[in-house]
């Protein structure tokens, strides 16, 4: 998840919306890992949203082929467990049920609506403005970030940005290619089936390393500006398709811009500046702002009243 973004994605993304400044990542080596992902996907028809994503993610493709959705799921669980150790869960049932409904709904309108284990959402009891998206769809958002939201549309913008990190597999791309290559080699051996064997122990070490790679990028350093841009675009597409007001993404970034503290360790430290992101989003907005029905605003206020 990225805290700097609105969202950091995997891992700890806070996805976001805007969130501020992600550090640039060294992606060398990963692009190779991704070439070829599209070959494993069944969608080949022109114009398909999902197929387009796969083609665009040539670099992502190959790595995804090596790390199938089941493995991505187990990586994501452990990443999320690490995030929830640093950022304890806030177990307000009404608020968590609400963001789970918003989040599941926007995930259905994404280019990756189905993952191995599915999408799940959790509020963290932290004043930090942050969000994290672990691989496979485990998304954690802080109370501090939710307090920046003035409407359900803003919550949807935050969660859609995080879903964007999941659909683009940004967390998985933080894993060093050499670890994936080594893991694939071990999986291809008979000894890897036997608990306690040296091969299984080596696999566990590679898993440790992969988790550290993702956490370091998502939580500590932030995703690249390009990744944040990809997730903002994904969020816009989702908002426009579902009927939410896409300007809620801009509203959130403005709100965050006013609240983020320079030098703080949250979103501001790990995401591009909200103003830079707004400049890239605005040309892609719909011509007119969509009105928010009273019923939608009422349920937002009811569910978020204790956040």
């Amino acid at each position: 998840m990225e805290r700097r973004t609105f969202l950091k994605y995997s891992g700890l993304t806070l996805a976001g919306v805007g969130l501020t400044g992600c550090k640039e990542l060294d992606m060398s080596g990963f692009s190779q890992a991704m070439s070829g992902l599209g070959q494993s996907m069944p969608g080949t028809g022109g114009g398909d949203q999902f197929s387009s994503l796969m083609r665009a993610g040539g670099a992502v493709a190959r790595a995804m082929e090596d790390l199938d959705p089941e493995q991505e799921y187990y990586l994501g669980r452990t990443v999320a467990a690490n995030v929830l150790t640093r950022y304890p869960a806030w177990n307000n049932r009404e608020a968590n049920d609400y963001i789970s409904q918003v989040g599941r709904y926007v995930s259905l309108a994404s280019a990756l609506p189905e993952t191995f284990g599915g999408y799940y959402f959790q509020i963290a009891d932290s004043d930090e403005i942050n969000a994290f998206a672990a691989p496979g769809g485990l998304i954690i958002v802080t109370r501090g970030l939710l307090r920046c939201c003035k409407s359900e549309d803003a919550v949807a913008a935050v969660l859609a940005h995080e879903v964007g990190h999941v659909q683009h597999r940004h967390g998985i791309q933080a894993i060093r290619r050499s670890r994936i290559t080594s893991a694939v080699a071990i999986v291809g051996t008979e000894a890897a089936r036997h608990a306690g064997s040296p091969e299984v122990r080596q696999l566990a070490q590679l898993f440790d390393g992969a988790i550290n790679d993702i956490i370091t990028t998502m939580v500590d350093n932030g995703y690249s500006r390009a990744f944040e841009r990809d997730s903002d675009r994904a969020a816009l597409a989702i908002l426009q398709r579902t009927g939410y007001d896409d300007r809620a993404l801009i509203d959130m970034l403005q709100e965050m811009d006013g609240r983020l503290q320079p030098g703080a360790k949250d979103f501001a430290a790990t995401h591009p500046s909200p103003s830079a992101r707004m400049g890239e989003i605005e040309p892609n907005l719909l011509a007119e702002r969509r009105a928010i029905p009273r019923s939608r605003q009422s349920r937002f206020q009811r569910a978020m009243r204790n956040v």
Partner: peptide
């Protein structure tokens, strides 16, 4: 590859990591 057994090994080496919170999160599914 990275499966339930590998996760179990990770949990044994990192007892401080809160997997219970993830299990609880996964039970919340509209």
């Amino acid at each position: 590859g990275f499966n339930a057994e590998v996760e179990q090994e990770y949990r044994q080496r990192h007892a401080e990591i809160n997997f219970a919170a993830v299990d609880q999160m996964e039970r919340r599914s509209p």
